[in-house]
């Protein structure tokens, strides 16, 4: 029922930091997420790609030092495609995602609280239908828990480095095409 206390304390600290970052980054706001999908506001993409570039370098360094492990999810094609599209559709309808909506609850947003209730129901429906769905997905193409370096039989370092460089270049170009001042001021 309870995980070890140390893990819970770490969850507490990192959760608070995550909430602060999301709210200060303005992504706990309906306009920002909807603006991203309407391609009018690029705050979400800027935050996500910067996090990926910084994160991939550090996490792969920690893994190379032998002090961290990779934890990836399974790559069942049907799950990823159907789940991804359903998720994106729901996200655009609600206007907030599972992490940003709880940060929006912290802002006091009433509609975010209703959406969170909806997510409890949606997750419950999934769990309740798991037994019926699982055999269906098990019968379809599944690449298992695999990273791009593993899939191609290459070392992760060139991937992480190249990804960070590509993101840095892409962001420089994006910032030129769509400067931060064009993103909504809220």
């Amino acid at each position: 029922m309870f995980e070890e206390p140390l893990k819970l304390v770490l969850g507490l600290i990192s959760g608070i930091l995550f909430g602060v970052l999301l709210q200060k980054g303005q992504v706990a706001k309906f306009q920002k997420l909807m603006g991203q999908f309407l391609l009018k506001d690029f705050t979400v993409v800027k935050i996500m790609t910067t996090a990926i570039a910084v994160g991939t370098l550090g996490v792969h360094a920690l893994v190379a030092l032998g002090v961290a492990e990779i934890h990836v999810q399974t790559a069942s094609l049907a799950r990823v495609i159907v789940g991804g599209v359903l998720f994106g559709t729901g996200l655009a309808i609600f206007g907030l995602c599972p992490g940003t909506s709880v940060a929006a609850c912290g802002e006091g947003r009433r509609d975010a609280m209703i959406g969170v209730l909806g997510m409890f129901v949606g997750a419950g429906v999934y769990v309740a239908s798991y037994e019926a769905l699982e055999p269906l997905f098990r019968s379809m193409a599944d690449y298992g828990k695999v990273t791009l370096p593993e899939f191609t039989g290459t070392a992760p370092w060139p991937w992480a480095g190249a990804l960070a460089v590509v993101i840095a270049i892409a962001l420089a170009l994006l910032e030129r095409a769509h400067p931060k001042r064009l993103d909504a001021k809220l």
């Binding site: 999810q73 799950r79 789940g83 998720f87 559709t89 909806g118 949606g122």
Partner: peptide, 26 residues
């Protein structure tokens, strides 16, 4: 609308095995 969006999104997230944070960043 927010409630319906939340239901769809959480179902999709569990199906795919993650959300904007779990898949999108981590």
């Amino acid at each position: 609308i927010g409630f319906i969006g939340g239901v769809l999104m959480a179902f999709g997230a569990r199906l795919a095995g993650g959300c904007t944070s779990g898949h999108g960043i981590s």
